[in-house]
Amino acid sequence: MAARSDATPWQEQSPAILTFDDDGRTPNNRLPVLLYRPAWSPDAGEALALQLEALFNANDWPAQWRGGVFAFHHYHSLSHEVLGIFQGSAMLMLGGESGERVTVSAGEVVVLPAGVGHCRLEASDDFTLTAGYPPGQQDWDLCRSGEADITAARQRIDRVGRPLSDPLMGPDDGLVHYWH
Rank of each mutant, 00 (worst) to 15 (best):
A114N: 05
L50E: 15
Q51D: 15
P167V: 02
H180L: 13
E46Y: 09
L35R: 04
N29H: 11
G99D: 06
T8C: 10
D125W: 06
T19I: 12
A114Q: 07
Y178H: 08
T19F: 09
I157Q: 10
V82M: 08
P135W: 03
C143A: 12
R66P: 03
V109E: 07
E53M: 15
L83R: 12
D6G: 07
V116A: 09
L92E: 07
G96K: 08
G107L: 09
L31F: 10
G68R: 09
S105K: 15
I85R: 07
I85Q: 10
W10E: 02
D158L: 14
G146T: 00
V33F: 10
H74W: 03
E122H: 08
F70A: 15
D172V: 04
R144G: 11
L92F: 08
W40A: 14
V109W: 07
Q138T: 05
L35G: 02
V176A: 01
E122N: 13
C119Q: 10
R154T: 10
E122L: 07
W40V: 14
P38Q: 10
G170I: 00
E97S: 13
R101K: 13
L92A: 09
F20T: 03
A2M: 12
G161L: 14
R144Y: 11
H80D: 15
T128Q: 15
Q138E: 06
P15F: 01
P171Y: 00
L129V: 06
